[in-house]
């Protein structure tokens, strides 16, 4: 139970999802990737529109609690999280409405090396 007089502190502290992990990130900034094309019945943070799409790693966020596992009662299973850029044309083809890109935070298990496709 969170007591009333601890609420302000709890809100100002938050619940960071960053975790230390032993492994090194597999991808480097600048690398091209392709997202996986698996259809899960369970929770995932890989939006449907970004499945099986080519993108570029533009940032590394550290390892974060893996939402897919955490939602399924499997514990935190922290994994490397990247900022990935998808050019609008790659996502939408001719349906894109001009020069642009979508940026997503994607866990390593969503990503295949650009050559694996």
């Amino acid at each position: 139970m969170l007591p009333k007089d601890m609420v302000a502190v709890a809100v100002a502290t938050g619940a960071p999802s960053l975790r230390p992990v032993e492994t090194s990130p597999r991808f480097q900034v600048g690398e091209t990737i392709r997202t996986i094309n698996d259809t899960f019945a369970t929770h995932t943070r890989l939006p449907g529109y970004a499945r099986d799409k080519p993108g570029t790693i533009v940032g590394y966020e550290g390892a974060h609690v893996f939402a897919d596992a955490h939602a399924a009662g499997q514990g935190e299973c922290p994994d490397h999280l990247y900022c990935v850029r998808f050019d609008s044309k790659s996502l939408w083809g001719k349906g894109s409405d001009g020069s642009g890109a979508v940026y997503l935070s994607l866990w390593e298990s969503y990503l295949l090396a650009g050559d694996d496709q």
């Binding site: 619940a15 929770h43 939602a71 009662g73």
Partner: peptide, 8 residues
Amino acid sequence: FNIDESRH
């Protein structure tokens, strides 16, 4: 519960 269970 946790936030990911809530979103699911």
